[in-house]
Design a protein around this nucleic acid. Structure first.
Lengths: 343, 343
DNA sequence: CTGAAAGCGCTTACAG
DNA sequence: CTGAAAGCGCTTACAG
């Protein structure tokens, strides 16, 4: 049972492969195929269940109709849902999408980009890792369409869709200050990524603007790669050493999750002993008792904006060098973990 | 800046394309290429950063080195992590993977399978929807490798990796009975999928084996597609109408999440007023107060078993018709939501 | 030990 | 309005 080809269709209809190809590619009108011929071709295509061979088309045109999605971790709530929406939108536009997780590792990210390049993807959506600048610049130089999502690369001007991390962090900190908290601990990871530095800047500026003091006792940084257990221990230790803290700001949702475990470990009650807020929402924060106040990323908006931008670049409606960035505003969702502070 | 091809490499070395191809495909020894020639070729390939054109290779060999992963929802914890592991394993074996979410919709699933077929994937890992039997049988007839994951299709013998839903459900119910609960409500979705029917059977048999009575008051079924709000209302109503219930068994983790919201809505306290257990773990259940007892799916084991099985079928080490199913045992993780019942 | 050549299934410039 | 033919970049049977 051999697959049917354009040749088979053409032969059965006593016409040429050219005609069949024009019909398939919607060029009948432009190339002046008669409606009668067009119908004959379409009918037989349907009857024989003919589908053009994508490899042949790809070889001939150089376009694979495939996109590459490189995220930090497809198994996490944020990126999993980003991926779902991107895949649906890509599909609507005739694209399939390859995906891969970098686990925030430079070498993995580089390998994945090159692997996908060998499969000739038509464009990328990339969650950059810290040392990815050269690799991404290479894409730019070779004129391969891409869009950065969720995080920028310092000193690299390009197309991106990111969250306004500074503003979200500033507003979330301000929310705590307005509710009477004065000794706020900011717990983040060691990172040069602007995503992290912006969140820290937003926190610091909100504190200073609120007339509050800042010392190193307000900051804890942990290693991203550290195991859950060791991170929880670090946080617990920090809490034990800084008993004057009345609120905690976790810079990512997985830090928040670990932080909540750490608080249980040292027997601190949220929100009676200490208030808690976190950057990034997830199901858990909504349903925990108490529920957790967050700065939430509009996932749907970020995903659709980035795939639309990538398709525009691929279709050359937007130049790769045009540097049209989208900065999405996060939303502060006030929940039970940050009530007005009791006197 | 044109991409370098095998022809360029051959010309520069004054050798033939054949020789270059043999070297690239590791056939030097078998075809008797001299070590000196082989080294010359390899060095130039590295120097010119040559990568074989995948489209040409695909057209010629009929193999795309691409797999299709069709899951219910890549954005959910279980499938997102399944996807991550499958992608990593596939990559190790030289495959890229396309993914798509069915949202448990038959038409979407059929469309996705056919779309991927047109991109000539070499094999599929599929989370079946209820009406997917014909489509999957077609794959079988055309000898296209695939493995079902997470759920079977009734009356269809094939390769699969699933959870032992019956045993997990039986054991989880038994755990409640041993702890003194007698009026247990089983909350599930309308579904013909064996996954669901097995869970219900496990529950019912454990109840009967425990000498407990069963009536329709022990069962609530909701629509999968129903919105969160309407599902929560249904559950809340069920609870109000069945005040004698002392424990709830949620048949999936998203039902568990909604159920917890419903319990808050009708002011029932876990575990003082009512115990709760759920099938499928997630981060939330571990961190909620109280934490939730679950039957947990070994995600890593399910993912690796399924990709290994698919690769075996592709490499013809296992026949598609061989029907080698793997049934993975779930683990009961006892947490705070199901203590011994107070007198 | 190595090379010339056919052919995978398309698209498209060219010819009529 | 439609067709014959080149060519995309590989793999591999065949020849020597």
């Amino acid at each position: 049972m051999k697959k049917v080809s354009m040749k088979d269709i053409a032969k059965e209809l006593n016409t040429s492969i050219t005609t069949v190809s024009f019909v398939i590619n919607g060029k009948s009108a432009a190339m002046g195929i008669s409606p009668a011929t067009e119908k004959k071709v379409r009918d037989l295509i349907k009857k024989r269940e003919f589908n053009p061979n994508s490899a042949a088309r790809m070889l001939r045109t150089g376009k694979s109709k495939t996109l590459g999605l490189i995220v930090e971790d497809i198994g996490n709530f944020f990126f999993g849902n980003i991926a779902k929406i991107i895949e649906i939108e890509a599909n609507k536009n005739g694209y399939n999408v390859f995906f891969s997780s970098t686990e925030n590792n430079d070498e993995t990210a580089k390998r994945l980009i090159n692997k996908m390049r060998n499969s000739s993807v038509d464009g990328y959506i990339i969650t950059a890792t810290q040392g990815l600048k050269d690799e991404v610049m290479k894409l730019g130089k070779e004129n391969i369409p891409f869009v950065l999502i969720d995080r920028l690369i310092p000193d690299l001007e390009t197309n991106y869709v990111i969250l306004d991390n500074y503003q979200g962090s500033y507003n979330l900190t301000n929310h705590l200050i307005e509710r009477g908290y004065k000794n706020i601990g900011f717990i983040s990871i060691y990172s040069e990524m602007t995503m992290m530095t912006e969140r820290e800047k937003g926190f610091s500026n909100a504190m200073l603007d609120g007339g509050l003091q800042l010392s190193e006792k307000n900051f804890l940084k942990v290693q991203f790669a550290a195991s859950g257990a060791s991170t929880i221990n670090h946080i617990a230790e920090f809490l034990s050493n800084n008993t004057e803290l009345d609120a905690l700001f976790f810079a990512t949702n997985y830090l928040g999750v670990m932080g909540i475990e750490a608080l249980q470990k040292v027997n601190l009650n949220i929100p009676n002993d200490i208030a808690v807020v976190s950057f990034d929402d997830n199901d858990l924060f909504r349903l925990l008792t108490p529920s957790i106040t967050v700065a939430s990323q509009p996932i749907h908006e970020m995903a659709t904006k980035s795939i639309e931008m990538l398709l525009r670049i691929i279709k050359k409606e937007q130049r790769l060098t045009e540097n049209r960035g989208e900065v999405i505003k996060p939303e502060i969702i006030v929940r039970e973990s940050s009530p007005f502070k009791k006197a």
